[in-house]
């Protein structure tokens, strides 16, 4: 169940890599921003985080477009070291800007359905988890439709495959990159908003998710959207299973080890060969 949410927040990361060939180390910070947008929408407007998710998407989409235009665009052809450290710098800036703006406290929302759960036969399913999962599936489907059938989606995939050929076909690769980056971070922010009902927002929440997202994406194959879905579900299962065996503070350790192992033995991911 958690896996579905992991898939959505990680699709953003894989989209950015797939289209532009850049690993965005700052991606998880946009999840944090999405959480804060949803939090303030709840605190000021009384909006439910699930309804605020599209708002979080739009706000971070615009921010992402601006960041792409001003910063990322300049290093697309630069050496890898520049790409890596530009996004690392972005990570530090976003995290600390959030610390300055929002303070270091932990914030959570209260919703009427927060503690309720549904009984499905012998299973109890917590409503916030279910809602987050449903929203994730919906947004994942929307993205899939968008990539599959809209002109923009096809143009974006063409740019990912071969920017030069795409340009010859009259596609503005620059605009596609901007769209992909904005869409990628927007989607991650959307995921941040839908998990707010059962998590707390803080400026450092991104770090908790960073390695998780990378594990999901690498497990499924960097750049592959379907891979992110498979990877997300797999990580959800790995986490639940490791929770049964290991104490809670070692849960992340299991993820790290899986992560390094996948990178070492199958860097193209589980679906890498199929693509």
């Amino acid at each position: 169940m958690i896996g579905g949410v992991y898939a959505v927040i990680s699709i953003g990361l894989t989209l950015v890599f797939g289209v532009m060939g850049i690993v965005n180390f700052a991606q998880a910070e946009f999840l944090m921003l999405g959480m804060f947008v949803a939090y303030y929408a709840w605190a000021w407007l009384g909006l439910d985080p699930l309804l605020a998710a599209p708002l979080a998407f739009v706000v971070v989409f615009l921010l992402g477009a601006a960041i792409q235009r001003v910063l990322i665009r300049r290093v697309l052809k630069a050496p890898e070291v520049a790409q890596i450290f530009l996004t690392v710098g972005l990570l530090i800036v976003l995290e600390n800007a959030a610390l300055l703006m929002f303070g270091s406290g932990f914030r959570s929302v209260s919703t009427p359905y927060q503690t309720s759960s549904l009984q499905l036969g012998p299973l109890f399913i917590s409503v916030p988890y279910l809602a987050a999962f449903a929203m994730s599936v919906a947004s994942g489907l929307a993205l899939w439709l968008f990539l599959k059938s809209s002109w923009f989606g096809r143009a974006m995939r063409a740019t990912a495959q071969d920017p030069m050929a795409a340009r010859l076909m009259g596609i503005d690769a620059d605009r596609m990159h901007m769209l992909a980056f904005a869409l990628g971070v927007g989607l991650t922010a959307f995921g941040g908003a839908v998990i707010l009902p059962y998590l707390t927002a803080s400026p450092t929440v991104g770090t908790q998710f960073a390695v998780l997202m990378f594990t999901v994406v690498v497990l499924g194959g960097l750049g592959s959207v379907a891979g992110a879905v498979v990877g997300g579900l797999a990580v959800g299962i790995i986490q639940s299973l490791s929770a049964l065996v290991f104490p809670i503070q070692l849960q992340n350790l299991v993820l790290f080890v899986v992560f390094i192992a996948v990178l070492a033995f199958r860097p193209k991911g589980m679906l890498g060969a199929a693509r």
Binding site: L71, I92, V93, P203
Partner: peptide
Amino acid sequence: GLSQLVFGLLLI
């Protein structure tokens, strides 16, 4: 956080 912010900006 401000000094860390400066650190990140400098890197960028």
